[in-house]
């Protein structure tokens, strides 16, 4: 294990940022700390990096107890959401900074920086100032700067958070490929479940200062431990008192089989390749259930708004117990829509 975190607590005044967190982060992998804003994931990352001190608990990095070590002595690479570029230094000098601090020979620094700039595709920008780069380029520079010191672990705090959607997607793919090349143990914080599912080998879901679940993207998506993980990682709809993924539901218009729930199609919505069908269940109280199908599946059914249908759960689908009912404005709107 590259990072062992044991019973870490952290408070900011009255606010509990981390509540007795213990987690082991495996060596050589890309691990995502995923959760909503303010859930404590950035605080955990900053504690690993030594930028924040835990109130209690231990942090061990590659077998070394780092709990009391300042960031200077942890040999971690840290990448910030807003790049944290050294604005007055050229891209080359930014990347060289950690090596200059370590007083490496000039020639070695030069060749190492050239190597890193090639790795992040910034060779032709070496002499520019950070202000002359785009956001994506700046973040690649920050990544090269962090990698220059050959860190034990690489920590990325919402690294793509400040970028627009397209660049974000590109950099995400690129980070995955880069990691497959460099193999440094990497932990990155994100609130974007798609990003975590796509890039990470392992995901740690953190909410309200506690760890909700740890597992591979498949584990988390298919076998969520609770309703929070279930609804945070993907779309959910409620069927009876269970939460279920809308694409795990099937529709048929024949006679209802045992366990099926009958209803009426309230609305049909096409989003690209996907058809979203809102079904108002019969019986009291009526529920608005969302079912998603592919266009071909839906066409084969030959149904339209108002048609009577039966909903059944696809075999081997995972469901979790729904949280106690708390009507949200969205739910109210949905039930209003379905009653018309």
């Amino acid at each position: 294990m590259s990072i062992e975190i044991t019973n870490v607590n952290k408070r900011f005044g009255d606010f509990v940022a981390l509540d007795d967190v213990s987690v082991s982060i495996p060596t050589g992998q890309l691990t995502a700390l995923l959760g909503p804003s303010g859930g404590g994931k950035s605080t955990l990352l900053r504690i690993i990096g030594g930028l924040e001190q835990a109130d209690t608990g231990r942090v061990v990095i590659e077998g070394v107890d780092a709990t009391g070590l300042p960031p200077q002595k942890r040999n971690v690479g840290f990448v910030f959401q807003h790049y944290a570029a050294f604005k007055h230094l050229s891209v080359r000098r930014n990347v060289a900074f950690g090596l200059e601090i370590r007083k490496r020979p000039k020639a070695e620094i030069r060749s190492r920086v050239d190597e890193l700039l090639a790795l992040v595709h910034l060779e032709q920008f070496a002499e520019r100032l950070p202000s002359q780069l785009s956001g994506g380029q700046r973040q690649r520079m920050a990544l090269a700067r962090a990698l220059a010191i050959e860190p034990t672990v690489l920590l990325l705090d919402e690294p793509f958070g400040a970028l627009d959607a397209k660049v974000r997607r590109e950099l995400r793919d690129w980070l995955r490929r880069l990691h497959d090349e460099v193999h440094v143990s990497t932990v990155f914080v994100t609130h974007d479940q798609e990003e975590a599912l796509e890039v990470a080998d392992e995901i740690v879901v953190i909410n309200e200062g506690r760890i909700e679940q740890i597992g591979s993207p498949d584990d988390l998506y298919d076998r969520p431990a609770n309703d929070f993980v279930m609804s945070f990682l993907g779309p959910v709809t409620q069927l009876g008192d269970r939460l279920v993924r809308p694409h795990d539901l099937q529709l048929h218009s024949g006679d209802p089989a045992a366990g099926d729930i009958s209803g009426q199609i309230a609305r049909i919505n096409r989003i690209g390749f996907e058809i979203r069908v809102d079904v108002a269940t019969t019986g009291e109280p009526s529920q608005a259930v969302v079912v998603t199908l592919t266009r071909n599946e839906f066409r084969a059914l030959g149904l339209d708004v108002g048609a009577a249908v039966n909903i059944r759960l696809a075999p081997e689908s995972h469901t979790t117990l729904a949280p106690p009912a708390q009507p949200t404005p969205a739910d109210t709107a949905k039930s209003l829509a379905s009653s018309h």
Binding site: G49, P71, Q72, V76, H82, A84, F97, I101, R145
Partner: peptide, 25 residues
């Protein structure tokens, strides 16, 4: 940018070096 100082610290720069090379410029 306080984060630039934190970045310098994680790259191994001590407080005085951070002041001289990151803050002072």
């Amino acid at each position: 940018d306080r984060e630039a100082e934190e970045a310098a610290a994680s790259l191994g720069a001590r407080r005085f070096t951070i002041f001289r090379r990151i803050i002072l410029p």
